[in-house]
Nucleic acid binder design. Sequence first.
DNA 1: TTGAAAGCGCTAACAC
DNA 2: GTGTTAGCGCTTTCAA
Lengths: 347, 347
Amino acid sequence: MKKYTIKDIAELAGVSKGTVDRVIHKRGKVSPAALEKVTKLLEEIDYQPNLIARSLKNTKSYHICVIQPDPKIDPYWQPCTNGVNDAINEYNSFGITIDSYFFDHTDTHSFLEVNKTVLKQSPDAVLITPVFHKESIEVIKIYNENNIIVSTINDPLELNGITNYVGQDLTQSGRIAARLMEMIVPKNRTILIIHLDEVFNNSIHMQLKEKGFKNYLERIPNSNYNLKTCSLQQTDLDQKLHDLLSKPNDISGIFVTTSKVYSVAEIVEDFPDLDIKIVGYDLLDDNIKYLKNNAIDFLINQNPKHQAYLCITQLAEYFLFDKKIPRQKLLPIDIINSENFDGYTHN
Amino acid sequence: MKKYTIKDIAELAGVSKGTVDRVIHKRGKVSPAALEKVTKLLEEIDYQPNLIARSLKNTKSYHICVIQPDPKIDPYWQPCTNGVNDAINEYNSFGITIDSYFFDHTDTHSFLEVNKTVLKQSPDAVLITPVFHKESIEVIKIYNENNIIVSTINDPLELNGITNYVGQDLTQSGRIAARLMEMIVPKNRTILIIHLDEVFNNSIHMQLKEKGFKNYLERIPNSNYNLKTCSLQQTDLDQKLHDLLSKPNDISGIFVTTSKVYSVAEIVEDFPDLDIKIVGYDLLDDNIKYLKNNAIDFLINQNPKHQAYLCITQLAEYFLFDKKIPRQKLLPIDIINSENFDGYTHN
DNA sequence: TTGAAAGCGCTAACAC
DNA sequence: GTGTTAGCGCTTTCAA
């Protein structure tokens, strides 16, 4: 019932606050007698330190640098930025400053440059979005050498040199798409898997998603879907897909492994006689538009905003209250249709 | 960059900390000259008080009572209890004590009794789960008279006398079920809407869900689903549903508006020749079992755990850091299938 | 090995 | 009106 403080414990044990503190923090220099008495008391009482008081002492202010792709170049990253901004507002009254740095997600050089700038700041932690696998591993090494905590979202980089990762299970995400396809696409038809993105970007993502997708569908007895994979550049998409759909075909489903689903939906709309179901990723405004009129059937929400926000939250609570940071946090994978997107975009 | 404190402001303005504090809290008794100087300085500097220091001062410990249906009687409520327990652990180091009280969700009397007990504790806030609409309104009135904050989950009770509500849009939730049905049930077939629960329980829920469900399907051009509603007691279900399915019929979908979906799935499994899609609510272990083998096609997650946890979080941050409590928080409505349930149950 | 004391930033009571 | 001061619970330094 009553909240016991260090002072209470000290009085009960007949020692000073200092001694109690030494016991609590195992800092030694305590006589066996005192040690035992205090330890026993702490247990009996189930002493819980007041975390607010503890962190007040720590007047140090912490500095987190966030390195993200520039949402002005690829709007997919906008939610990420929003999540970071939420965290900035949430924690600036608690002595945690968070600075955002942007790079061009098509340009490894800009990524490396930004990291150099950040390194000069010697922050307490960095949050990086590792769209460039190789370069990310390089910079993480340097941060590690400088005792800077590294967090990532989106890509776990096998968790090497990383303190915490917040993201999703990408293989499973492919399986989910496959299960949805199974429910809405008749058996024996052709399903297209389209990888659609810049050359460098996210390649690991697409591979894992494809793996999960195929893996699920291949294990269904007697379904006999015919799976075709196309890796396309945005610029080629229009012509290639038009060609495919113009010829006689039995394509009844398209799985787009990135967020550029709208550009596929746009083309499919030119073929109103074909009944093609589309499943893809992320709640971009353009995607929602096609989801609303059922041109896109399902979207899978990778929740970049929450990924970014949660990741910073974990760092902040570690700095402030010494909370343990979970090495890896896998977020649920949301299935979105024309009726429930609202709850996810308005958060 | 630098974190300014009240002391800094005081020095810069050439006044004392006390005066600065009076200005910040608009407590008057400040000369116009000092008022202006300090106000200006505060703005220029964009002063943010250190919330940790502020709340340390407040050594008062807060008391929240949570009143829920007993999960031992209806396991649906177990996640709720888990959410509450998470909050208990999270906040007990911050001087917030949370006590759980349980009632029998089939017995209004037990609900009223528990509320009497809680009232005697005169807590700072109560979180109630209003399964009994009328009785809830009564007790809320009494809490209001005693200046006890009232929070609810699950049912907003038109927000009368309530400080915050955390829940979902139930009509929309019915629409989501309808959209899913539309995708997996052929046109012109019969869809059953089954309300399955104790007499008193959740009646508003079921009505709103049915409304949304019908509302969506009736607006689809040329779909001509034949909708049939059945309000059943758990005890009657077995016989009535067997009767229905044994006769020749074109039932191809069943929408269960409560969490007892498994009991419907169990019966439908006795008719392997019929291809009946089932959509219902909540991630009970029994439901998951049927979801895994595709006997249940979709579940809609009402996320009772998160509802409870979030609601308490809001109260706690109000007490600790004076954060504003949002009047109403509508959670996203999760669509769950056999492949993504994992991310929602392991949280 | 121990206790006393100062101080983190903010608040509020009190004396002038 | 204003400044001073004590104190929230915890940590840490310093002197004993």
